[in-house]
């Protein structure tokens, strides 16, 4: 049972992007279209999986004092492997647009965060499930963000035009401001959904620590939780 829980937790309840707000650099920079977001998610999932396995295997022999450097070495190795494999086998277009972001997975907090908070404390199988769940959650969030931005900017999804008369791109959404606006809307929607769910089941929704929006008075979404 707990294996399934480890898997599903990353997808919704502790989604790395939409709840934990980790790895904002690739999230904001890469998600200009759905395809890029998805490929970045898949690449990160692979790194996460490899790192979680290795780190949970060596968790009992790594000296506490140098665990972070050891984790970084493991992560950097996996990222470089992914980079090599991608430039050898991935379609050139994806390789081109993701090229500069792949090395950045090394400093992606999701990977280090899961290594430190989960893999270094639990067994291999649970770590694998955790990595898969977190990776899937990350990929889905990135694909959704990318898809929304792509659609609002050009009227297409996965580079296929859905609304054909749409010829002039709306550049706001593919730029950095659009990334922040859409991410903000996603976070607000996520909080709202969770809140409604909690109210329906008669519980009080407590947003993840530090992520509640009750301190902001711009709208009344966060007010009734007090």
């Amino acid at each position: 049972m707990s294996l399934i829980k480890d898997f599903t937790r990353g997808i919704w309840k502790e989604n790395p992007v939409l709840v934990m707000l980790l790895g904002m650099c690739p999230t904001l920079a890469v998600t200009t279209n759905a395809e890029n977001g998805l490929s970045m998610g898949v690449a990160t999932t692979f790194v996460l999986l490899g790192c979680n396995i290795v780190i949970s295997l060596v968790r009992n022999i790594v000296p506490k004092k140098i665990r972070i450097p050891v984790y970084i070495v493991v992560i950097a190795t996996f990222v470089t492997v992914v980079e090599l494999l991608m430039s050898a086998y991935a379609p050139p277009a994806i390789n081109k647009s993701l090229g500069i972001f792949i090395p950045l997975i090394v400093v992606n907090c999701i990977v280090l965060g899961r290594a430190e908070a989960f893999a270094s404390k639990t067994g291999v199988f649970r770590s694998i499930m955790d990595a898969l769940g977190m990776g899937l959650g990350f990929s889905l969030a990135l694909a959704a963000l990318g898809g929304t931005r792509e659609f609002l900017a050009t009227g297409s999804l996965f580079q296929i035009k859905i609304i054909i008369p749409w010829t002039v791109d709306f550049m706001l959404w593919t730029g950095a401001p659009g990334a922040f606006i859409i991410l903000g809307c996603f976070l607000a929607g996520m909080n709202k959904l969770n809140m409604r769910k909690a109210v329906k089941s008669g519980k009080v929704y407590i947003p993840p620590q530090g992520l509640g929006c009750s301190h902001c008075r711009l709208c009344d979404i966060g007010v009734n939780e007090e």
């Binding site: 009992n60 790594v62 000296p63 506490k64 050891v70 070495v73 190795t77």
Partner: peptide
């Protein structure tokens, strides 16, 4: 090994890790 604070042991451990990583790469 987990609780060790001996700087030489730590150094060697990290060195071994880096060597394995280098081989894989």
């Amino acid at each position: 090994l987990k609780e060790t604070e001996n700087i030489f042991v730590l150094g060697i451990f990290l060195g071994v890790c880096a060597a394995i990583a280098a081989l894989v790469l």
